[in-house]
Nucleic acid binder design. Sequence first.
DNA 1: CTCTCATTTGTTATCGATAACATGAACGCT
DNA 2: AGCGTTCATGTTATCGATAACAAATGAGAG
Lengths: 340, 340
Amino acid sequence: MQKVTIKDVAQAAGVSTQTVSRVINSRPDVSPNTRSRVQQIITELGYSPNVIARSLSRGRTNTFGVVGFGLSYFGPSNVLQGIEQKSNELGFSLLLSLLDDFDAAQIDGILSNLLSRQVDGIIWAVPGNDRLEGELSSRFSQISVPVVYLNKPKQGDEVIAAMDNRLGGRLATEHLLEQGYNRIGIITGPIDWWEAQEREQGWRVTMSNTGLINLEELIVNGDWSASSGEIGLHNLLARSPEIEAVFACNDQMALGALKAARRLDIKVPVDLGIVGFDDIPEAAYFYPSLTTIRQNARSLGALAVDQMCSYINAREKDEEFEPDVKWIHPRLIVRNSSKR
Amino acid sequence: MQKVTIKDVAQAAGVSTQTVSRVINSRPDVSPNTRSRVQQIITELGYSPNVIARSLSRGRTNTFGVVGFGLSYFGPSNVLQGIEQKSNELGFSLLLSLLDDFDAAQIDGILSNLLSRQVDGIIWAVPGNDRLEGELSSRFSQISVPVVYLNKPKQGDEVIAAMDNRLGGRLATEHLLEQGYNRIGIITGPIDWWEAQEREQGWRVTMSNTGLINLEELIVNGDWSASSGEIGLHNLLARSPEIEAVFACNDQMALGALKAARRLDIKVPVDLGIVGFDDIPEAAYFYPSLTTIRQNARSLGALAVDQMCSYINAREKDEEFEPDVKWIHPRLIVRNSSKR
DNA sequence: CTCTCATTTGTTATCGATAACATGAACGCT
DNA sequence: AGCGTTCATGTTATCGATAACAAATGAGAG
């Protein structure tokens, strides 16, 4: 089955390729007669335009490059779903690349591949991380297409869509305080992640309002994994046995903490309150069910795509586009692990 | 910053564009002198070839279209990671589309988009499902590029990479039998999923060897969700109270079953053995920790890409390519939920 | 000293579309 | 009747690369 081109259609319809092109793109300046005749030939031959050729001539590919960070984490992979869905709605396709750790060495290759494929914009859906932050600005400064970042700290005039992780940390901590837990420890995420830092900050500002001093001994670092949550709780209790509650900065670590508590015969929520972060689907089925902070990662992805489109539109009309951070707000989901 | 084209390089180097093209593609017929001069100019100008233009002229895009099925499920999103990584290694980029339910209406749009973007092949990473199976063959029969399918039943001469789910079901069931559980119930996945059917078959063949009759009353249907697992166990026990173990066809449903058991004060694993499927990272932290079937979905994705490449190569050389199903084998991970 | 052949380079056509410009017919207006 | 407009369509150039073919150069053979 040879490919049908615009020429074949033109020939069959007895018109020029230009006229066919006008029909395809629903331009107004075609007579109704010709239009319907061409349209019919198009369906007959099963013609569909070659987007590669169109892209070359238009100088626009209707494609975004998306750089994600694995798909093992619940947040990032939901973000990607949001991006896909919204892009699709708006008529853009996605070229997907995945970074599998915060290794700057891969970045150049990925970016230059996307650029040589003439993407209309790049969506950087890699969670903000200290190990990368410095590298990013230098590499992106050379880039000529619009870039929208997800979940990273603002450093210059980037266009960013971010979850308000600090708010999440506050919501979690305030909830525990309201429930009457006073000494609230925290199992943080990996300290080089921006999101982890922000969640910790939310906890920190809330706790410092309580007048409690020496917050540092209430902090233990995890790495998002359940096992780090388990170890984390052990360490935390070894250091500060009088702790009444723990804010685990994601649900997996909360799960690990639940396991540690069970081992140590500490009753959750009576002896120890626990709050997680993310609201993974399993969280409601943990034992006890987990109070957590729900983040709507899909709408975050969608938001990023919206920003990208406004950016592109502004740029096309040569208008000013104000780089900005747009925020999505997480919310508290109360379950049994924190009910006194 | 205007884009640098091959013309600019040619002019700057005082050669024809053809010679530059030869250098870019490391063709042998360029003198060492010219080659190094051109190479230098290329780095000086920061030139990088326009892949869109190249694709048009070569008639090859080095791009695969990947159709996935959401990213919420652990299996599919790991498969996608495997696909991404392997494609990347082999120099292919991915155009990603996600189907978000088994709705045939979306398929045409997705496929024609991918085709009009001239992908070199399509990787259909949508889990096999009865609601789609009929639709697929008719739509794909028209398609002129190689297609590789993941995790679907063989119907004609498709090229397929699949996890041996039936083997998984057998491993789970045999393990429970070995542990001395006899009446083993099953909470299946959604019955229209091929993978769910296969896992059930694995259970069924193993159970029928035990001489147990009336298997039907040991079966209850779930939908992969934890809540369906919870309800499932309730129903199963209501119907056959003498059940000794349950094979939940994924880890989420196993989690739900664990919750139900806890509610009913049934001790796992003593009174009831439970085995899941998938080995999600959380499974080791359930209470009790979950015995399950681990599937290496990443290598499944990689396998599919390998098949695609052989397919394409064969086709280019006009060789015969034998359509075939390649299998990946899951394995049993024993934890506490099934230890008598 | 010519002739052949391999090596290196350039020229032209092409991939499949669209942009920019050109043409021709029909129409209304003075 | 003559002229500018509008509408519908065609022509040519272009996007940025590569394929296919052509030409120039130099080395070795006879």
